[in-house]
Each structure stands twice: as C-alpha cells, then as structure tokens.
Amino acid sequence: MNYLSSAFGGPWCVAVYTYREGIRRKLLIGFLILSLLVIFGSSFITSFVDPTAETDIDLKLIKDICVTAIAIFGALITVYISASVIPAEVETKVIYTVLSKPVSRVQYLLGKFLGIQLIIIVNLLLMGGLFFMALYIRQGIMPTLLLWSIFLTYFEFLIISAFTFAVSCAATSPLVPTLQGLFIYITANLTEYLKDVEHRAGQTGQFLDEAIGKIATALYSILPNLQNFSIKMQIVNGQPNDPPTDVMIPWLVLYSLVYAVAGFACAYLVFRRKEV
C-alpha cells in the first residue's frame, strides 16, 4: 500500500501542478476562447439558410461546425500543451528542482503526461459543454450521441498527445516539438494513403518499387491511423444503435490506449539519458 502511494502519489502531485501551470498559459486560453467563439458563433451561420424551409439544416450546420472546431482547436491545444510542458520546465530550470526530490524520471514523466491529459480533458469538456448546450437549447432533447463523439475525440487526442510528448522530451524549446506535433497529427491522418502506395507499388517489377510497397505495408500496419476516428463525425449526425459503431468504439478506445503506452515508452526512452 505504501509502495502504491509513493509510486502514484508523486506522479499525481506532478500532474496537478502541471495542470495548474498549463491551464494558465495565454496561448492555450487564446485557443480555447477562439474555439468557444466559433462554437457560439455557429448558431449565427444558420441565418444564411432559407428561413421559410422548416428543416433541421441549421442543426446540422451547428453540429458539423462545432465538431470540426473541437477537432481543430482541440488538436492545436493538445499539440501545444504536449509539446511545451517538458521544454518549458527545462527552459525555466524547474525540472532540476523537481528531479532533485524523491521522484524518479519515470514518475516525473508519468505525472507530466497525466497533467497534460487533465488539461486536454478540461478543455474538451468546456468546448463540448458549450456545444452540448447550444444543441440542447435548439433541439430541446439531450444530444447523447454528441457525448460519444467527444469521447472518441479525446482518445484521438490521446495518441497525438503521447507521441508529441515523446518528441518534446528531446527538445529544449517548445517551438520544434509543436511543429513536430502538427506533423504527427497530419501524417497520422494520412496513414490511409500508405495503403494506396502499397497497391500501386510493384507495378514496374523493379526492386526499389517492390521494396517501397513492402515498407508502405509495414508502416501501414505499425503506425497509428487517426482516420479510424473519423466515425466521430458520423456519430453526431447518425442514427443511434448502429451496430458497426457500437462495435468500433471499444476497439478504438483500446487502440488509443495501446498507442498512448507506446508513445509514453518512447518518451521515457528519450528522456532517460537526457542531461538535466
């Protein structure tokens, strides 16, 4: 019991102070305010639609714009916060103070990672909450499918966050890992194209052509594919009790957790030899 409290107590303290530090960042607050403005403003775009047609088009516009705003701003917040937590501590030299305490590097990293997740979750809840209210006011019924969409969005961010966190462990300033994080977000969304490369490769019969095909196959199998989470858009406007969606959600959660562990392991391997 003592071991558990000392093993997880330290990371939890680090997580809480990471959260407190992170939530005060001006850029993060800026992203959050922008996203909230877009979500709030989505209600006004419906004025472009023919008011004489009594349809649910305005509702669909709001849903799509809000889900997209959450995806864009949420990804930016995730990348920025995951990329900046460690380098900011190195820059301000706080890391030396923390690591001089009885906290191991793995505990420190775990705490930081948990703190990042707390920030992402709180931001997502704020954006999702406003979106939820906007829909509830218009529809008059609880948009429960929206909760599933936001739930899946978090797990998509978990993967981005884990790998951005890993690259940030090697950096001393937040700028480079932020760019790398954006690169991770984009490439992880393009993994599907590796399948296309695999199909097209080998047509000339040359060694290099075939090798490219094999590399594409291997990468397609190993790399996380964020397009798998595209069903979050489908859920919001879809029908409840859709069998494929019901089956897919638990698998996607597991998928995200597995890659988050891989990302965290990478972070540790990068950080263990870091001179601090």
Partner: peptide, 19 residues
C-alpha cells in the same frame, strides 16, 4: 520500457489489423 514499447507496437499492429 523497451519491452513495453515492442509489446504495445505489436498490439497496435494487431489492433490496426482488427480495426
């Protein structure tokens, strides 16, 4: 940790296939 990384990537590959 290297073992965890290998195992998680292997599991990720299996899950990629499943999804």
């Amino acid at each position: 940790m290297i073992l965890v990384l290998i195992l998680s990537l292997t599991a990720g590959t299996v899950l990629n296939h499943k999804i």
